[in-house]
């Protein structure tokens, strides 16, 4: 999985871009199952970090990145540059994690 270079810079330092292959993206919408959602609701009374949510979003973001990387790989890219993340709340308790970037071939 690690052979594709990911960066949010506009190019890979020290390497020349040979070809641009266009926009690649990955997304996922996730919700917490009800038990852990209730636990987080209780945690919400006293505040602090909601670990269940932190973990959920980290895992989901990784999945979005994996999907984007997979698309880039199928296009024959060896790097994705200028990556951006975005999180949005779609419904109560469900969030979309979205990641996009430009697939390129570097020397």
């Amino acid at each position: 999985m690690n052979d594709i270079i990911l960066t949010n810079l506009e190019k890979v330092p020290g390497r020349d871009i040979i070809k641009h292959l266009g926009l690649v993206q990955g997304n996922t919408v996730r919700a917490k199952h009800i038990g852990r959602d209730i636990a987080s609701g209780l945690k919400n009374i006293v505040g602090g970090e909601l670990h269940a949510y932190t973990e959920l979003l980290t895992d989901s973001r990784q999945q979005a990145v994996d999907r984007m990387t997979e698309t880039a790989r199928s296009m024959g890219a060896n790097a994705v540059v200028n990556i951006r993340f975005s999180t949005s709340s779609v419904a109560a308790g469900a969030s979309e994690l979205y990641v996009y970037g430009t697939a390129v071939i570097i020397e």
């Binding site: 949010n8 810079l9 949510y53 979003l57 951006r84 999180t87 969030s95």
Partner: peptide
């Protein structure tokens, strides 16, 4: 670490705020 971006988003109804920082 270069080109750091920081963003935040609210998660569901009053469930908290997610803060994300990323960079190269």
């Amino acid at each position: 670490v270069y080109n750091i971006k920081i963003q935040s988003a609210s998660i569901g109804a009053s469930r908290g705020i997610e803060i994300l920082a990323y960079g190269t």
